[in-house]
Design a protein around this nucleic acid. Structure first.
Lengths: 182, 182
DNA sequence: ACCTGAACACCGTTCAAGT
DNA sequence: ACCTGAACACCGTTCAAGT
Protein backbone atom coordinates (compact mmCIF):
# COMPACT_ATOMS: atom_id res chain seq x y z
CA UNK A 1 0.00 0.00 0.00
CA UNK A 2 1.26 3.42 -0.95
CA UNK A 3 2.23 5.75 1.87
CA UNK A 4 -0.52 8.28 1.18
CA UNK A 5 -3.11 5.53 1.02
CA UNK A 6 -1.94 4.10 4.33
CA UNK A 7 -2.16 7.53 5.88
CA UNK A 8 -5.70 8.01 4.57
CA UNK A 9 -6.71 4.63 5.87
CA UNK A 10 -5.34 5.22 9.35
CA UNK A 11 -6.86 8.66 9.54
CA UNK A 12 -10.24 7.35 8.39
CA UNK A 13 -10.17 4.68 11.06
CA UNK A 14 -9.39 7.22 13.76
CA UNK A 15 -12.16 9.55 12.63
CA UNK A 16 -14.61 6.67 12.26
CA UNK A 17 -13.84 5.56 15.80
CA UNK A 18 -14.69 8.97 17.16
CA UNK A 19 -17.82 9.36 15.05
CA UNK A 20 -19.13 5.93 15.99
CA UNK A 21 -18.49 6.50 19.67
CA UNK A 22 -20.48 9.72 19.41
CA UNK A 23 -23.34 8.64 17.17
CA UNK A 24 -23.37 4.85 17.03
CA UNK A 25 -22.51 2.49 14.18
CA UNK A 26 -25.28 3.90 11.97
CA UNK A 27 -23.45 7.19 11.60
CA UNK A 28 -23.43 8.52 8.05
CA UNK A 29 -20.42 7.34 6.07
CA UNK A 30 -20.53 10.62 4.19
CA UNK A 31 -20.15 12.37 7.51
CA UNK A 32 -17.10 10.31 8.42
CA UNK A 33 -15.51 11.11 5.06
CA UNK A 34 -16.26 14.81 5.51
CA UNK A 35 -14.73 14.85 8.97
CA UNK A 36 -11.68 13.06 7.64
CA UNK A 37 -11.37 15.56 4.78
CA UNK A 38 -11.45 12.93 2.08
CA UNK A 39 -14.02 12.14 -0.57
CA UNK A 40 -16.76 9.67 0.27
CA UNK A 41 -15.51 7.51 -2.59
CA UNK A 42 -12.13 7.29 -0.90
CA UNK A 43 -13.67 5.93 2.27
CA UNK A 44 -15.58 3.34 0.29
CA UNK A 45 -12.44 2.44 -1.59
CA UNK A 46 -10.70 1.48 1.64
CA UNK A 47 -13.80 0.01 3.27
CA UNK A 48 -16.32 -1.12 0.67
CA UNK A 49 -19.08 -1.65 3.25
CA UNK A 50 -19.97 -0.38 6.69
CA UNK A 51 -19.19 -3.87 7.97
CA UNK A 52 -15.69 -3.76 6.52
CA UNK A 53 -15.04 -0.48 8.30
CA UNK A 54 -16.35 -1.89 11.55
CA UNK A 55 -14.35 -5.06 11.24
CA UNK A 56 -11.14 -3.05 10.86
CA UNK A 57 -12.16 -0.91 13.79
CA UNK A 58 -13.19 -3.77 16.08
CA UNK A 59 -10.67 -6.42 15.17
CA UNK A 60 -8.50 -5.58 18.17
CA UNK A 61 -11.47 -5.80 20.51
CA UNK A 62 -12.55 -9.09 19.00
CA UNK A 63 -9.10 -10.50 19.48
CA UNK A 64 -8.96 -9.29 23.06
CA UNK A 65 -12.28 -10.90 23.91
CA UNK A 66 -11.15 -14.16 22.37
CA UNK A 67 -7.85 -14.03 24.24
CA UNK A 68 -9.68 -13.23 27.46
CA UNK A 69 -11.86 -16.30 27.02
CA UNK A 70 -8.80 -18.50 26.69
CA UNK A 71 -7.25 -16.91 29.75
CA UNK A 72 -10.36 -17.32 31.88
CA UNK A 73 -10.46 -20.98 30.93
CA UNK A 74 -7.28 -21.57 32.88
CA UNK A 75 -7.58 -19.08 35.69
CA UNK A 76 -11.15 -19.37 36.95
CA UNK A 77 -13.81 -21.86 37.88
CA UNK A 78 -15.90 -22.91 34.87
CA UNK A 79 -18.88 -21.09 36.31
CA UNK A 80 -17.10 -17.80 37.03
CA UNK A 81 -15.22 -17.89 33.74
CA UNK A 82 -18.45 -18.16 31.75
CA UNK A 83 -20.29 -15.40 33.59
CA UNK A 84 -17.32 -13.03 33.69
CA UNK A 85 -16.74 -13.42 29.99
CA UNK A 86 -20.40 -12.92 29.09
CA UNK A 87 -20.47 -9.79 31.20
CA UNK A 88 -17.42 -8.40 29.42
CA UNK A 89 -18.90 -9.19 26.02
CA UNK A 90 -22.08 -7.29 26.82
CA UNK A 91 -20.17 -4.42 28.38
CA UNK A 92 -17.92 -4.14 25.35
CA UNK A 93 -20.81 -3.68 22.92
CA UNK A 94 -22.05 -0.65 24.82
CA UNK A 95 -19.11 1.26 23.36
CA UNK A 96 -20.46 0.67 19.87
CA UNK A 97 -24.13 1.50 19.94
CA UNK A 98 -26.04 -0.47 17.35
CA UNK A 99 -23.32 -3.02 16.63
CA UNK A 100 -25.42 -5.89 17.94
CA UNK A 101 -27.87 -5.78 15.05
CA UNK A 102 -24.99 -5.95 12.58
CA UNK A 103 -23.40 -8.84 14.44
CA UNK A 104 -26.68 -10.73 14.58
CA UNK A 105 -26.93 -10.34 10.81
CA UNK A 106 -23.26 -11.25 10.26
CA UNK A 107 -23.23 -14.48 12.25
CA UNK A 108 -24.91 -16.39 9.47
CA UNK A 109 -24.00 -14.23 6.50
CA UNK A 110 -20.72 -15.63 5.23
CA UNK A 111 -20.35 -12.62 2.91
CA UNK A 112 -20.33 -10.09 5.74
CA UNK A 113 -16.96 -8.63 6.67
CA UNK A 114 -17.91 -9.24 10.30
CA UNK A 115 -18.73 -12.90 9.80
CA UNK A 116 -15.39 -14.41 10.76
CA UNK A 117 -15.09 -12.33 13.92
CA UNK A 118 -18.60 -13.26 15.02
CA UNK A 119 -18.00 -16.94 14.42
CA UNK A 120 -14.78 -16.81 16.44
CA UNK A 121 -16.57 -15.07 19.27
CA UNK A 122 -19.34 -17.64 19.26
CA UNK A 123 -16.79 -20.45 19.39
CA UNK A 124 -15.10 -18.88 22.41
CA UNK A 125 -18.44 -18.66 24.20
CA UNK A 126 -19.27 -22.23 23.26
CA UNK A 127 -16.03 -23.49 24.81
CA UNK A 128 -16.67 -21.69 28.08
CA UNK A 129 -20.23 -23.01 28.13
CA UNK A 130 -19.10 -26.58 27.46
CA UNK A 131 -16.58 -26.33 30.28
CA UNK A 132 -19.29 -25.23 32.71
CA UNK A 133 -21.64 -27.91 31.45
CA UNK A 134 -18.98 -30.57 31.92
CA UNK A 135 -18.95 -29.95 35.66
CA UNK A 136 -22.73 -29.64 35.83
CA UNK A 137 -22.73 -25.90 36.47
CA UNK A 138 -24.65 -24.83 33.36
CA UNK A 139 -27.84 -25.97 31.69
CA UNK A 140 -27.08 -28.93 29.49
CA UNK A 141 -29.75 -27.99 26.95
CA UNK A 142 -27.88 -24.97 25.62
CA UNK A 143 -25.19 -24.50 23.00
CA UNK A 144 -22.98 -21.78 21.56
CA UNK A 145 -25.76 -20.36 19.41
CA UNK A 146 -27.92 -19.90 22.49
CA UNK A 147 -25.13 -18.08 24.29
CA UNK A 148 -24.54 -15.86 21.27
CA UNK A 149 -28.25 -15.02 21.10
CA UNK A 150 -28.43 -14.29 24.85
CA UNK A 151 -25.44 -11.99 24.73
CA UNK A 152 -26.89 -10.28 21.67
CA UNK A 153 -30.23 -9.59 23.30
CA UNK A 154 -28.66 -8.29 26.48
CA UNK A 155 -26.35 -6.08 24.44
CA UNK A 156 -29.32 -4.80 22.47
CA UNK A 157 -31.00 -3.90 25.74
CA UNK A 158 -28.08 -1.65 26.59
CA UNK A 159 -28.53 0.14 23.26
CA UNK A 160 -32.08 1.21 24.05
CA UNK A 161 -31.97 4.31 26.25
CA UNK A 162 -35.30 3.50 27.91
CA UNK A 163 -34.33 -0.08 28.74
CA UNK A 164 -30.62 0.32 29.45
CA UNK A 165 -31.08 1.08 33.16
CA UNK A 166 -32.35 -2.49 33.57
CA UNK A 167 -29.59 -4.10 31.54
CA UNK A 168 -27.30 -4.94 34.44
CA UNK A 169 -30.05 -6.41 36.60
CA UNK A 170 -31.48 -8.44 33.75
CA UNK A 171 -28.02 -9.72 32.93
CA UNK A 172 -27.95 -11.27 36.39
CA UNK A 173 -31.41 -12.75 35.88
CA UNK A 174 -30.41 -14.30 32.57
CA UNK A 175 -27.02 -15.43 33.88
CA UNK A 176 -28.70 -17.22 36.76
CA UNK A 177 -30.94 -18.95 34.24
CA UNK A 178 -27.94 -20.23 32.30
CA UNK A 179 -26.33 -21.55 35.44
CA UNK A 180 -29.48 -23.24 36.68
CA UNK A 181 -29.00 -27.00 36.44
CA UNK A 182 -31.51 -28.89 34.38
CA UNK B 1 -63.87 14.10 8.44
CA UNK B 2 -64.91 14.41 4.84
CA UNK B 3 -65.95 11.22 3.08
CA UNK B 4 -63.05 11.25 0.61
CA UNK B 5 -60.57 11.82 3.42
CA UNK B 6 -62.02 8.94 5.40
CA UNK B 7 -61.73 6.72 2.37
CA UNK B 8 -58.10 7.72 1.83
CA UNK B 9 -57.33 7.08 5.46
CA UNK B 10 -58.87 3.62 5.50
CA UNK B 11 -57.21 2.69 2.25
CA UNK B 12 -53.83 3.89 3.49
CA UNK B 13 -54.17 1.81 6.64
CA UNK B 14 -55.01 -1.29 4.62
CA UNK B 15 -52.06 -0.78 2.27
CA UNK B 16 -49.73 0.03 5.15
CA UNK B 17 -50.76 -3.18 6.91
CA UNK B 18 -49.83 -5.22 3.86
CA UNK B 19 -46.57 -3.38 3.24
CA UNK B 20 -45.48 -3.69 6.86
CA UNK B 21 -46.30 -7.37 6.98
CA UNK B 22 -44.16 -7.85 3.89
CA UNK B 23 -41.24 -5.58 4.68
CA UNK B 24 -41.37 -4.69 8.35
CA UNK B 25 -42.16 -1.40 10.06
CA UNK B 26 -39.22 0.35 8.41
CA UNK B 27 -40.86 0.15 4.99
CA UNK B 28 -40.60 3.36 3.00
CA UNK B 29 -43.54 5.68 3.60
CA UNK B 30 -43.18 6.85 0.02
CA UNK B 31 -43.67 3.27 -1.06
CA UNK B 32 -46.87 2.94 0.98
CA UNK B 33 -48.22 6.15 -0.56
CA UNK B 34 -47.32 4.93 -4.03
CA UNK B 35 -49.05 1.60 -3.50
CA UNK B 36 -52.10 3.42 -2.15
CA UNK B 37 -52.12 5.72 -5.19
CA UNK B 38 -52.00 8.90 -3.15
CA UNK B 39 -49.33 11.53 -2.77
CA UNK B 40 -46.75 11.07 -0.03
CA UNK B 41 -47.93 14.35 1.47
CA UNK B 42 -51.41 12.92 1.83
CA UNK B 43 -50.12 10.01 3.87
CA UNK B 44 -48.21 12.38 6.12
CA UNK B 45 -51.29 14.55 6.45
CA UNK B 46 -53.23 11.65 7.95
CA UNK B 47 -50.31 10.21 9.88
CA UNK B 48 -47.70 12.84 10.62
CA UNK B 49 -45.14 10.29 11.80
CA UNK B 50 -44.40 6.63 11.27
CA UNK B 51 -45.41 6.10 14.89
CA UNK B 52 -48.82 7.67 14.31
CA UNK B 53 -49.42 5.31 11.41
CA UNK B 54 -48.36 2.33 13.49
CA UNK B 55 -50.49 3.36 16.43
CA UNK B 56 -53.57 3.50 14.20
CA UNK B 57 -52.62 0.15 12.74
CA UNK B 58 -51.84 -1.59 16.02
CA UNK B 59 -54.44 -0.05 18.31
CA UNK B 60 -56.73 -3.05 17.95
CA UNK B 61 -53.91 -5.46 18.77
CA UNK B 62 -52.89 -3.39 21.78
CA UNK B 63 -56.44 -3.41 23.07
CA UNK B 64 -56.72 -7.15 22.55
CA UNK B 65 -53.53 -7.83 24.47
CA UNK B 66 -54.71 -5.62 27.33
CA UNK B 67 -58.10 -7.33 27.40
CA UNK B 68 -56.42 -10.72 27.32
CA UNK B 69 -54.36 -9.79 30.35
CA UNK B 70 -57.50 -8.88 32.29
CA UNK B 71 -59.13 -12.12 31.24
CA UNK B 72 -56.17 -14.27 32.23
CA UNK B 73 -56.19 -12.63 35.63
CA UNK B 74 -59.49 -14.27 36.43
CA UNK B 75 -59.25 -17.53 34.54
CA UNK B 76 -55.78 -18.86 35.27
CA UNK B 77 -53.30 -19.41 38.03
CA UNK B 78 -51.08 -16.37 38.60
CA UNK B 79 -48.11 -18.26 37.25
CA UNK B 80 -49.77 -19.54 34.08
CA UNK B 81 -51.47 -16.21 33.43
CA UNK B 82 -48.15 -14.37 33.46
CA UNK B 83 -46.28 -16.78 31.23
CA UNK B 84 -49.15 -17.23 28.76
CA UNK B 85 -49.53 -13.49 28.39
CA UNK B 86 -45.81 -12.88 27.93
CA UNK B 87 -45.71 -15.56 25.28
CA UNK B 88 -48.59 -13.94 23.41
CA UNK B 89 -46.96 -10.53 23.58
CA UNK B 90 -43.75 -11.83 22.07
CA UNK B 91 -45.62 -13.85 19.44
CA UNK B 92 -47.67 -10.82 18.45
CA UNK B 93 -44.64 -8.66 17.69
CA UNK B 94 -43.37 -11.19 15.16
CA UNK B 95 -46.13 -9.99 12.84
CA UNK B 96 -44.60 -6.51 12.83
CA UNK B 97 -40.91 -6.91 12.24
CA UNK B 98 -38.95 -4.07 13.79
CA UNK B 99 -41.75 -2.74 15.98
CA UNK B 100 -39.84 -3.57 19.17
CA UNK B 101 -37.25 -0.88 18.63
CA UNK B 102 -39.98 1.71 18.16
CA UNK B 103 -41.81 0.53 21.26
CA UNK B 104 -38.64 0.61 23.33
CA UNK B 105 -38.16 4.22 22.23
CA UNK B 106 -41.81 5.11 22.80
CA UNK B 107 -42.11 3.79 26.34
CA UNK B 108 -40.37 6.81 27.78
CA UNK B 109 -40.99 9.35 25.03
CA UNK B 110 -44.26 11.04 25.97
CA UNK B 111 -44.36 12.71 22.56
CA UNK B 112 -44.44 9.44 20.63
CA UNK B 113 -47.78 8.42 19.20
CA UNK B 114 -47.08 4.93 20.54
CA UNK B 115 -46.38 6.10 24.08
CA UNK B 116 -49.86 5.60 25.56
CA UNK B 117 -50.23 2.11 24.11
CA UNK B 118 -46.84 1.05 25.43
CA UNK B 119 -47.58 2.40 28.89
CA UNK B 120 -50.88 0.54 28.97
CA UNK B 121 -49.18 -2.67 27.91
CA UNK B 122 -46.52 -2.28 30.58
CA UNK B 123 -49.21 -1.73 33.22
CA UNK B 124 -51.00 -4.91 32.17
CA UNK B 125 -47.77 -6.87 32.50
CA UNK B 126 -47.03 -5.28 35.85
CA UNK B 127 -50.41 -6.40 37.20
CA UNK B 128 -49.86 -10.00 36.11
CA UNK B 129 -46.39 -9.93 37.62
CA UNK B 130 -47.63 -8.52 40.91
CA UNK B 131 -50.29 -11.21 41.08
CA UNK B 132 -47.70 -13.94 40.63
CA UNK B 133 -45.39 -12.27 43.13
CA UNK B 134 -48.20 -12.10 45.69
CA UNK B 135 -48.40 -15.88 45.81
CA UNK B 136 -44.64 -16.28 45.75
CA UNK B 137 -44.50 -17.64 42.22
CA UNK B 138 -42.35 -14.91 40.66
CA UNK B 139 -39.11 -13.19 41.64
CA UNK B 140 -39.91 -10.42 44.07
CA UNK B 141 -37.05 -8.23 42.80
CA UNK B 142 -38.70 -7.44 39.47
CA UNK B 143 -41.22 -4.85 38.35
CA UNK B 144 -43.22 -3.85 35.29
CA UNK B 145 -40.25 -2.18 33.63
CA UNK B 146 -38.25 -5.37 33.90
CA UNK B 147 -41.06 -7.37 32.32
CA UNK B 148 -41.38 -4.83 29.52
CA UNK B 149 -37.64 -5.00 28.88
CA UNK B 150 -37.62 -8.82 28.90
CA UNK B 151 -40.51 -9.02 26.46
CA UNK B 152 -38.81 -6.43 24.26
CA UNK B 153 -35.55 -8.30 24.10
CA UNK B 154 -37.23 -11.61 23.35
CA UNK B 155 -39.32 -9.94 20.67
CA UNK B 156 -36.17 -8.40 19.20
CA UNK B 157 -34.64 -11.86 19.03
CA UNK B 158 -37.50 -13.00 16.84
CA UNK B 159 -36.79 -10.11 14.47
CA UNK B 160 -33.24 -11.26 13.76
CA UNK B 161 -33.31 -14.01 11.14
CA UNK B 162 -30.14 -15.63 12.46
CA UNK B 163 -31.31 -15.70 16.07
CA UNK B 164 -35.03 -16.30 15.60
CA UNK B 165 -34.74 -20.12 15.60
CA UNK B 166 -33.66 -19.87 19.25
CA UNK B 167 -36.38 -17.44 20.28
CA UNK B 168 -38.87 -20.01 21.55
CA UNK B 169 -36.30 -21.97 23.55
CA UNK B 170 -34.82 -18.85 25.07
CA UNK B 171 -38.28 -17.62 25.96
CA UNK B 172 -38.62 -20.68 28.15
CA UNK B 173 -35.21 -20.07 29.69
CA UNK B 174 -36.10 -16.48 30.53
CA UNK B 175 -39.60 -17.38 31.70
CA UNK B 176 -38.16 -19.92 34.10
CA UNK B 177 -35.86 -17.21 35.43
CA UNK B 178 -38.80 -14.90 36.13
CA UNK B 179 -40.65 -17.67 37.95
CA UNK B 180 -37.64 -18.65 40.03
CA UNK B 181 -38.30 -17.67 43.63
CA UNK B 182 -35.79 -15.42 45.27
C1' DA C 1 -1.95 3.42 -7.67
C1' DC C 2 -4.81 6.25 -5.62
C1' DC C 3 -8.21 9.96 -5.26
C1' DT C 4 -12.51 12.58 -6.28
C1' DG C 5 -16.52 15.22 -8.05
C1' DA C 6 -20.64 14.34 -10.06
C1' DA C 7 -24.63 11.76 -11.43
C1' DC C 8 -27.89 8.52 -9.67
C1' DA C 9 -31.80 6.57 -7.18
C1' DC C 10 -33.44 6.64 -2.95
C1' DC C 11 -35.35 8.70 1.73
C1' DG C 12 -38.59 11.93 4.90
C1' DT C 13 -39.95 17.02 5.40
C1' DT C 14 -42.12 21.05 3.99
C1' DC C 15 -45.07 24.17 1.55
C1' DA C 16 -47.18 26.87 -2.11
C1' DA C 17 -50.62 25.98 -5.40
C1' DG C 18 -54.61 23.53 -6.83
C1' DT C 19 -59.62 21.49 -6.45
C1' DA D 1 -61.28 20.84 3.71
C1' DC D 2 -58.45 18.13 1.51
C1' DC D 3 -54.94 16.84 -1.89
C1' DT D 4 -50.49 17.09 -4.46
C1' DG D 5 -46.26 18.08 -7.16
C1' DA D 6 -42.06 19.98 -6.46
C1' DA D 7 -38.13 21.66 -3.97
C1' DC D 8 -35.14 20.49 -0.26
C1' DA D 9 -31.48 18.27 2.39
C1' DC D 10 -30.09 14.07 3.26
C1' DC D 11 -28.34 8.97 2.27
C1' DG D 12 -25.17 5.05 -0.08
C1' DT D 13 -23.59 3.45 -4.86
C1' DT D 14 -21.14 3.89 -8.98
C1' DC D 15 -17.88 5.50 -12.34
C1' DA D 16 -15.46 8.44 -15.60
C1' DA D 17 -11.88 11.70 -15.19
C1' DG D 18 -7.92 13.42 -12.85
C1' DT D 19 -3.07 13.24 -10.46
Amino acid sequence: MRADARKNRDHLLAVAGTAITEQGVDVSLRDIARRADVGLATLLRHFPTREALLDALLRTSFDELTAEAAELETSNSPEDALVLWLRDCVAWTTEYRGVTVLMAAAIEDADSALHASCVTLRAAGARLLARAQAVGMARSDMDGDDVFALVAMLAWLGDQPALAPRADRLFEVVASAILART
